[in-house]
Design a protein around this nucleic acid. Sequence first.
RNA 1: GGCCCCAUAGACUAAUGGUUAGGUCAUCAGCCUUUCACGCUGACAGUAGCGGUUCGAAUCCGCUUGGGGUCACCA
Length: 486
Amino acid sequence: MSVRVRFAPSPTGFLHVGGLRTALYNYLFARHHNGTFVLRIEDTDRTRLVENAVENLIKSLHWAGIDYDEGPGRGGEYGPYIQSERLYIYTEYAVQLHQRGAAYYAFDTPEEIDEMRKRNPAESFTKYDRMLMKNELTLSNVEVMKLIEAGKTFVLRLKVPDSTTIVFDDLIRGKVEVTANEIDDQVLMKSDGFPTYHFANVVDDHLMKITHVIRGEEWLPSTPKHVILYDAFGWDKPLFAHLPLLLNPDKTKLSKRQGSAAVEDFASEGYFSDAFVNFIALLGWNPSADREIYSIDELIESFDIEKVNKGGAVFDRAKLEWINFQYLKQKPVSELTDILAPILEAKDISGFNTEYIEKVIDLFRERIKLVKDIPEIAGYMFVPPQEYEPDYMEKYWKANTIEILKPLLVQYKATDDFSHSALYELTKSYIEGLGMKLKEIIHPIRLMLTGKSAGAGMFETMEVLGKDECIKRIEEFIQKKELEGI
RNA sequence: GGCCCCAUAGACUAAUGGUUAGGUCAUCAGCCUUUCACGCUGACAGUAGCGGUUCGAAUCCGCUUGGGGUCACCA
């Protein structure tokens, strides 16, 4: 039987990083087994619907390079893939489940249920008390009919079997056991006619022939309810695999409160999607541990759901940045230019051709974390420095600096070869001829050209900046200094 | 609190009964040097605790401790 897995997010906002990891593992599993990866939208909570959430979800998945075989916008023979379009299906199966005696109708109002829960505040577990509430088990058939005819709303509840033990196998955790007494009579169909997650997810996974349910660990406690449903319908169960959670630095479930948890934020911050996926993949699983950088094909090739860790993994930004940097070093410069160009444009920096931008990128790619850092760290490559670091000035600008510089400037003007190696030779022989060290002149030059103490190699920077620009900046700086001197 | 899950250094992980417990990030130090980075070299640092099984335990079992998840007409 061929493998079929699904990613089933609810469209309540943006794709969560944890959601992306779940999607990724499903994707890796499907591709590894030449199976099918389904995207299903679980939008059965009408109170939490968010505009454009589905589009955002798909956009983020697309950014990450995770493509699905069946789902919204793509079709497939088990559609529709949006649960709100499948209501007639759930209704049908709800009736069937009721006929099998595995579920019952209940007429309690939310207030009555609240009251029931408050009745035993000391109780550690406030299960729906099926024998004390208003439902089919406590009312006569006549009373039930009356309530329905009176237009009273009702829900369908799962009739959890008494005193049995629910057992299921988890691919990652092994055998999990829960006694049925601990399980609540879960609402399956809400009074608005929509199914709850628990019901819709079981019906859909069955109808969509899902073979492996790979989802976050937060679903582990409700899995016994799902198992009861499969058994009540007499359906084969899929295999379950509950992934460890992604954690905040304080070990709680990864949330937006502690830094970013939305995939699109990382995209807009400028992380590379392949680097991000690489990083996420290694949170909870590692193909071998002898290296950190893996292509998506390598991840697919070696993915093994049974080797996924059980414990939660802290999302560590420092490691993300390091991995992103490894990709940054390797990327073709054209790809980086495509990223930088619009950023420059947004900052009203224009008039630079691609060739120049590429040179700037190569000069700085090992000095930045993200491409978007370039305008900040290397703004002087595009606009002459507006200010000069006082400390740096203090340290390297001496009373005689201008006198030393002037003859050198003449030589710079005279040379036709403004390559970094030629500049190096020229400068070095000049300064050593004065009995000085190279660094004694490099710092003043850096100051005049960039205003900053930190930057790329000086002569490399000069080469990229170009002869005209360098001379212009030096002359203007000297002029200004001399004016100040008067 | 009940139930469930989990536990290798600050973080991510490897080692599925036999290794001086390996790698990576972070941190620290040194080297390189033209500043900042990169790079290179090295260092620090771990099997939560206690019992048991075994010739032998990070690995299997139990207890304790710690952490997390979950207990809705949310997913």
